Amino acid sequence: MEKKYNKQGVIGSVIFHAIILLILIFFGLKALPNEEEGILVNLGNVQTGQGKIEPPKASTTPSTPPVQKTTPPPKPVEESSSKSEENVKTQDFEEAPVVKTKAQLQKEKEEKKKREEEKAKQKRKEEEDRKKRLEEERIANEKAIAEAKAVEEKRLKEEAERKKREEEQRIKDEARNNVGSAFGKSNSTSVSEGDAGGSGNQGYVTGDPNSTNRTGSGLGNSGNGADLTGRSLVGGLPQPEYNIQEQGVVVISIKVNRSGIVTSAEYEFNGSSTQNQTLIAAAKKAAMKAKFNRDSSAAMEQKGTIRYTFELN
């Protein structure tokens, strides 16, 4: 197929050139017209001269007087630059377009792609920074809300504890006043008794109005009771559990923290009338369950005693 096209091309080319040749022969090749004849003149370079000998051809160039060259004054740079700019501006032809090679086009394409990737990367980074900033603000707001909530809860808790202490103190004062009025000595019109100062009847609600003791459990040498200076039981004294036929008094030395919780319970020999280990263990277990009123001004561990009287079942 390719040979056929080549053959046709050769034939067409021969026919085309033959036609051109015929056109030149019939229309283009004409004889030049004969010019009018004239007088042959001598070779020279001026209109005047004298002598019969022809000067050599080297001297055909007319001699001209030397021209004195004068150095023109230097032109301002601005003028030359302005002229060059005018020359550039007054050009009436356009520069030929630059034909870029395949390698240049590929390089420009890669550079464009690289710029676009850098732009997209910068945009992603800005978006990530924005999200990170919003997340930090959200965490800071949540933390501030949590702190405010904790402060409010602490305030409410302290307020509740304060009201509870006030209520306990009110009940305690009311009970003391009632006991003082109910168990006062019948042969006296006094409404106040004690040696601790203040008004009221010093002692315990479980005590004996005829007793001169101002401190202690208020039970004398019988019954169960607790002795913790300035503190009172909350909810009553827990009773020991035992199932043996033994009797006697067991005194337990206790330590109580400011919250009213018993932190230690040990057997106290003084005041005890038995060393039965079963009774002692039952007394210690019951003493650890005792609760006293809260007192923030008390010692870290306030010492006291709990007395248990065991009887035969």
Rank of each mutant, 00 (worst) to 15 (best):
F16Q: 10
E136K: 05
V179N: 15
Y267P: 05
T64V: 12
V250E: 06
V151L: 15
R294T: 07
A148R: 13
I39Q: 14
R133V: 08
N270L: 01
E118A: 09
A120E: 06
T215G: 01
F26V: 11
S63D: 13
L237A: 05
E158N: 06
V10C: 00
S13C: 03
E193S: 12
K89D: 11
S211W: 07
E108K: 04
N210P: 00
E95P: 10
E127F: 10
E142V: 04
A298H: 08
R170E: 14
K285V: 03
A286E: 09
K123W: 06
I20R: 04
R214N: 12
K121N: 03
G216F: 02
K114S: 13
I306Y: 02
K131I: 04
L233A: 09
E152C: 02
K143P: 03
R138K: 15
A96G: 01
K69T: 14
R176E: 15
E159M: 09
S217G: 09
G198Y: 04
T274N: 02
T48D: 11
L279C: 05
A120R: 11
K107I: 01
L312H: 11
N210Y: 12
K131G: 00
I171T: 13
I171L: 15
E94R: 08
V67Q: 01
Q91C: 05
L22F: 15
N42K: 09
S188L: 04
N257Q: 07
K119S: 06
K255L: 15
M1A: 12
L279V: 11
F26R: 06
K121A: 13
K289T: 02
L219T: 14
A282L: 02
S297F: 13
P240Q: 09
S273P: 00
S81G: 05
E54K: 05
E246Q: 15
G44P: 09
G218H: 06
E153A: 06
K52V: 14
R133S: 15
A120H: 04
K75Y: 07
E135L: 11
V46Q: 15
I244V: 06
R231P: 03
S296W: 08
G230K: 04
L24E: 03
V41A: 06
V67T: 11
T70M: 10
S63P: 07
I145H: 14
K52M: 13
V191F: 13
N42Y: 12
S63F: 13
V205T: 04
E95M: 11
G235T: 03
A160R: 15
A290N: 00
E111W: 02
E128W: 12
A144I: 10
S192C: 06
K3G: 07
P62G: 07
D129L: 12
E94C: 07
N6Q: 11
F310P: 01
V41M: 08
T206H: 04
R133Y: 10
E142C: 03
T229Q: 13
I11G: 06
N221T: 14
P209Q: 12
A31V: 01
K57F: 14
V250S: 08
K89F: 09
G207H: 03
V249L: 03
G260Q: 05
F16V: 01
R130P: 00
G304T: 01
S296N: 12
Y308I: 01
L40N: 15
Q91P: 00
Q245L: 09
R138Y: 10
T70D: 08
F310R: 01
I306S: 01
